[in-house]
Design a protein around this nucleic acid. Structure first.
Lengths: 157, 157
DNA sequence: TATTGTTATACTCTATAACTATA
DNA sequence: TATAGTTATAGAGTATAACAATA
């Protein structure tokens, strides 16, 4: 942006060198989600259900609230999702013997299998998309995206 | 992903080398939007209003429907937004003399000024964020993001 | 009759509040 | 009394359908 600063002592604005990040990221994210939808539909999964499968795979979780927080959802919102996943035997959901208020959540073998298959299909499609970028640009994009999305909380101040 | 393919003749899945793109892009986009909110609030702008100002700046538009389509919004959804912007004299909105059904939309000087100020503040914040990335990674990220977000329509098939 | 913009309505998604059960 | 989970309700955001003006 430095080369675009206005010359005078005016507020130093001038033409932006690029669109706003959010103006690029948000529509791209939405388009990508829409493109994944057919793959999820084919397996009878909603986006929330797939998100749950992804987060349970990393490690089992002791309470539904913790899961909800991890995927940035309201705890009331994932209940129907868990109901459906449990009914299809894709997850285990048992009262913790040591504190029967809590529900131990984990993937069943079938859940893991389905999760792997779906993620493989999605990432294969993504790779085709990324193949449009020159190798160096692709690497930078992925590394930068991973770094930024791993930041605990963003502020622009 | 190639180095992660399973060894047998099984479905060739194995552990993914990275999270799904959408699983990184969507939360990052949301976090960025949330971070921009205080800047917009300070100027009494909603995200939709700011989006309208950005798109009108590129060039005036002849119909509201065209604007709505350009920013991927429903035509009924932007009406209240245009009402508010017009009431603050940030945009012009006149019936086209040649076809009085259409409304010619353009920025007023004040609208352009406000848009520039807000965008400058937002992009300054973004630059602080991008400064967390090594220079090379930052460049790749921005170039890749611009390329991908410029694609007309994504499919994973 | 078709198109632009608008208004009224319905629907979807999400969050808040109230309730049950365990502790 | 406090916490995990659930259910019922209300709210925001969005889209669909019906309408008025213009062509």
């Amino acid at each position: 942006m430095a080369q675009n600063v206005a010359q005078g002592d005016s507020p130093a604005q001038g033409q932006p060198a690029r669109p706003d990040l959010a103006a690029m990221l948000v529509p791209l994210g939405r388009a990508l989600m829409a493109a994944e939808q057919p793959i999820l539909n084919a397996q009878g999964l909603t986006m929330w259900a797939y998100t749950v499968l992804l987060h349970l795979d990393e490690k089992p979780i002791r309470t539904q609230s913790a899961l909800a927080e991890a995927i940035r959802a309201d705890k009331t919102r994932i209940i129907a999702v868990l109901d459906a996943l449990e009914a299809r035997a894709l997850i285990h959901r048992q009262p913790d013997p040591e504190d029967r208020r809590a529900r131990l959540l984990s993937l069943t073998p079938e859940g893991r299998l389905l999760r792997d298959r779906v993620q493989y299909a999605i990432q294969q499609g993504e790779e085709r998309l990324l193949a449009l970028l020159p190798a160096e640009e692709r690497e930078g994009f992925l590394r930068g995206l991973r770094t930024l999305s791993a930041l605990p909380d963003l502020t622009l101040e």
